[in-house]
């Protein structure tokens, strides 16, 4: 099937990377290390979930890391200074903060009719500035055990962060791949004209898409906060590009219409495996940066050749 071809490529790529590292270092192939790759990928992964929706709809979201930082600060602030103690309330607060900013982004895109690139570039600065202002420029450190347990602890032997990651992907995969809402997002990203002509309310759709992406960025902020035990206004500088890279590695069309969460998941794993493997091998950062670039280019070549072959 056409839609699954990039998925298979991404899977092969991932297997190849794992095989290389398994031979190169004895520390790579262990359950513990796999869990460590997954927990390290939780934050980028949740950001990539949001980015998948936006890219599926033919947009781009540069604000996700800023929104994540804001959500982490808002939540940490509420936990430290406003007497919030319930982890579920904190989780919702983070998600809703993200969804609110995301919804605002969607509304601004509808009102201005500007490309999402510009609006989210603006929102990136605004979200980060709000985070800096609220935190006074200083990370909010030192949270209660019941919160950090959600980022650092284990549930049924699984790191809690991994559960957030998997839960996010399952929910998002259901929404994008198996519901009317997801179908409409993909159709809109494919052809805005087709979506409008068939009576889909495209403005509402955009609003919902960005709010949902914002929600996942907010959840990423919650996991970040629980993992690092702090709300950090300068958290995740440059993560938005990592998230977009993962989505593209996963076989999505940058111009919309085709995106798959299983692909994004494998894209996140590719990046995580690469970083983990190179660190285990104690290879200098210069080369790590180089390898991420090479992997992305290689995936572009692969796709080009297989497109020609078919």
């Amino acid at each position: 099937m056409f839609a699954n071809k990039p998925l298979i490529q991404c899977a092969l790529f991932l297997v190849l990377l794992c095989a290389v590292f398994s031979f190169a270092t004895p520390y790579f192939l262990s359950l513990d290390n796999m869990m460590s790759i997954l927990s390290a990928g939780a934050v980028i992964g949740l950001l990539a979930v949001g980015a998948t929706f936006v890219i599926a709809a033919g947009g781009i979201d540069l604000s996700c890391a800023g929104v994540m930082a804001l959500a982490s600060v808002v939540t940490a602030y509420a936990l430290k200074n406003m007497g919030v103690t319930n982890p579920a309330v904190a989780f919702l607060l983070a998600g809703l903060t993200g969804a609110f900013i995301g919804g605002l982004t969607g509304a601004l895109i509808n009102v201005t009719r500007a490309p999402s690139f510009i609006i989210t570039l603006g929102m990136m600065s605004i979200a980060r500035a709000l985070a800096l202002i609220l935190a006074g420029g200083i990370p909010i450190y030192g949270l209660a055990e019941n919160i950090t347990a959600l980022g650092q602890g284990r549930v049924f032997g699984m790191p809690a962060a991994v559960l957030f990651l998997l839960g996010g992907f399952v929910l998002a995969g259901y929404l994008l791949g198996f519901t009317r809402f997801g179908r409409h997002i993909l159709a809109f990203g494919d052809s805005a004209m087709a979506a409008h002509a068939t009576g889909i309310r495209t403005n509402l759709l955009k609003l919902k898409t960005f709010a949902l992406a914002g929600f996942f960025s907010g959840i990423a902020g919650f996991v970040f906060m629980a993992r690092t035990n702090s709300g950090d206004p300068s958290a995740g500088m440059g993560y938005e590009l990592m998230a977009i890279t993962a989505v593209i590695l996963g076989g999505a069309n940058l111009f919309g219409g085709r995106a798959h969460l299983l692909g994004t998941f494998m894209g996140v794993l590719c990046l995580g495996v690469l970083q983990n493997g190179l660190t285990l091998l104690a290879i200098s950062t210069f080369y790590q940066v180089l390898f991420v670039g090479i992997v992305l280019l290689l995936s572009a070549f692969l796709r080009r050749f297989s497109a020609r072959a078919s």
Binding site: F2, A187, D190, S191, A194, N253, R258
Partner: peptide
């Protein structure tokens, strides 16, 4: 429509 308004990446 003249341009058909189809989502071309969809089946």
């Amino acid at each position: 429509y003249q341009d058909l308004a189809l989502a071309k990446q969809h089946h």
